[in-house]
Design a protein around this nucleic acid. Structure first.
Length: 286
DNA sequence: CCTATTTCCTGGTAGC
DNA sequence: TGCTACCAGGAAATAG
């Protein structure tokens, strides 16, 4: 499913095709998930940004209003250079080219809104700092983590940090040696998690994201990402943990498949002053 | 304010 | 082979 690395890869490939172009027409199949897209017609795109898992195309201001197009890829959404069986939206550009949005499961969502007005999208409205930017402050994260509810659910909310989904949450928690169901992290754990999030996302962006076995995600140029080959827990139930040799387990947490290593992601709260991460870090450096 | 549950949506696949 | 049942899950809506 597209998370920050997949959306960022999409953004980088889409930007040269879209920025500077004027949208002539947007066709879609009439579902409620593509709101007010007609307002984009006749407008020139000045930049393509990303916030968490959201793509945001900014339009050139006109005297009356400033608008932007928000695109969320959902579970299976992605851009292609040609139509396909699951093309849901077609964007016709002024140079005669077109962009095709395919989305087999229809969880993707588009909307044209006034710039910065995200009232209809509460998650975007309340989204946390970009994990790969200076805005992601380690001490602020650590402070919040002291009172965190179930850590996986907390991270998936997009509040403490933007852009994490089911895959990269599981991977980051494994790397930090923290059980997904833990609450109220100790400062040392939260610091490990902060670093793990940045490392996992950085490496995944460099890899062009993850393309899962169902091949639903591809880059706009049609190529697959390859970070799936570096997953340590996601979709690896029953396999050996690369760090300790334990067996990866899968449980359900917050309605989501959750993968972890019970050996090096212990559920017990660390005792005050102890270094619960010793095993995890040792495994990583040897 | 917060947490838990349900809904959306459809292709792929397990099981018979 | 062909059918049914179920699973995947981000975010919003709803309920408590």
């Amino acid at each position: 499913m597209p998370e920050l690395p997949e959306v960022e890869t999409t953004r980088r490939q889409l930007a040269p095709l879209l920025v500077g172009r004027t949208i002539v027409r947007i066709e879609h199949d009439g579902r409620h998930r593509y709101r007010d897209t007609h307002l984009a017609e006749g407008r020139r795109v000045t930049r393509l940004d990303r916030r968490g898992k959201y793509l945001i195309a900014q339009f050139e201001d006109d005297p009356h209003e400033s608008l932007e197009l928000i695109v969320h890829l959902g579970m299976t959404g992605g851009f292609r250079s040609a139509t396909g069986r699951h093309t849901r939206v077609t964007v016709h550009l002024d140079d005669g080219s077109a962009l095709y949005f395919q989305d087999s499961r229809r969880f993707g969502k588009w909307a044209v809104v006034r710039t910065g007005e995200y009232g209809s999208m509460p998650t975007l409205q309340n989204i946390g700092p970009e994990p790969l930017s200076e805005d992601f402050d380690e001490e602020a994260f650590v402070t919040q983590a002291l009172n965190a509810p179930v850590v996986k659910t907390w991270l998936l909310s997009q509040g403490p940090v933007a852009g994490l989904g089911n895959i990269y949450v599981d991977e980051a928690l494994w790397r930090a040696g923290i059980h997904p169901a833990r609450t109220r992290l100790a400062p040392e754990e939260a610091r490990r998690l902060y670093t793990a999030i940045r490392e996992v996302l950085t490496e995944a962006v460099e890899a062009g994201g993850s393309t899962l076995a169902d091949h639903t995600y591809a880059q706009p140029n049609g190529e697959s990402g390859w970070f799936q080959f570096r997953h340590n827990v996601y979709a690896r139930k029953g396999k050996a943990c690369a760090r300790c040799g334990g067996t990866i387990e899968k449980i359900v947490l917050g309605q989501r498949g959750t993968h972890f290593c019970p050996e090096c992601q212990p559920h017990a709260q660390p005792e005050p002053g102890s270094d619960a991460g010793a095993r995890a870090r040792k495994g990583r450096t040897t």
